[in-house]
């Protein structure tokens, strides 16, 4: 279980304030919210890459507030994927295992298994720069998942994919979550991602959480309106086209 309590992070003129956010073990939480409201700062704080001035972060019962990133057991897939360009796909995925001292033979086996699960086994000897965006995204996901993190942080992981790849990635994420049962915090601007993937939806605005609820519950709130507005416009265009 991940718990964020009384978190306060001031950066420049911006303040992030999270009174309480809990992600149960195995839960898939999708975080929505307009641009610049602190979603990425929250993700970085949980990963230990930003130092909040106040508050506590509990990871599986351990107070991780003062732990450096390498001791939190949290894995990150940033929007840019941030693959290691000077390593093969195999070495990218194996990196976390190598640091954990996993023996060579087991390492190979675990890399092979996760690569097969994500359909990238044929790419293992390639360099990241030779991969398509969708392939890079899956490598980043494999690199994060192979270490069996206590929490998987995904910061707009699908936003630079074309619609077909995004739909594929959505299904893949859902399948992976079903099979591996990891705990996830997934930041996105897409209502479709939220509804398809989330056990729970959180919505942020102005540096604070406005609501944490079920996907269905979220649709009832006023925060869902801008997201539904987009769909309404599509429907309207279709109606006008038909009439």
């Amino acid at each position: 279980m991940i718990a964020v309590e009384g978190l306060e992070l001031r950066l420049g003129g911006f303040t992030l304030r999270i009174d309480r956010l809990v992600i149960e073990r195995g839960e898939y939480l999708v975080l929505l919210g307009p641009s610049g409201v602190g979603k990425t700062l929250l993700v970085l704080s949980i990963a230990g890459l930003m130092r909040p001035q106040r508050g506590r972060i509990l990871i599986d019962g351990v107070d991780a507030t003062r732990l450096p990133p390498e001791r939190r057991g949290v894995a990150l897939v940033p929007q840019s994927y941030a693959l290691f360009p000077h390593m093969s796909v195999r070495d990218n995925i194996a990196y976390g295992l190598r640091l954990r001292g996993v023996p060579e033979r087991e390492r190979r086996e675990r890399v092979r298994r996760i690569a097969e699960l994500l359909g990238i086994a044929h790419l293992l000897d390639r360099r990241p720069s030779t991969l398509s965006g969708g392939e890079q995204q899956r490598v980043a996901l494999a690199r994060a998942l192979v270490v069996k993190p206590r929490l998987l942080l995904l910061d707009e992981p699908l936003s630079s994919l074309d619609p077909a790849s995004r739909a594929n990635a959505l299904q893949l994420l859902k399948k992976l979550h079903g099979e591996l049962g990891f705990t996830a915090l997934h930041v996105t601007h897409s209502l479709a991602e939220a509804l398809y993937l989330a056990d729970k939806v959180a919505y942020m605005e102005g540096g604070v959480l406005r609501c944490v609820c079920t996907p269905r519950g979220f649709l009832e709130t006023r925060y869902a309106r801008p997201y539904l507005e987009e769909h309404r416009l599509v429907e309207e265009a279709l109606r006008e086209d038909g009439g």
Binding site: G48, P68, L76, P78, S80, L83, G96, L99
Partner: peptide
Amino acid sequence: IDPMVEAVARTLGAGP
């Protein structure tokens, strides 16, 4: 260099 590359290495278990 994208600072997130190093950040990811940190989360995967590497010290600074």
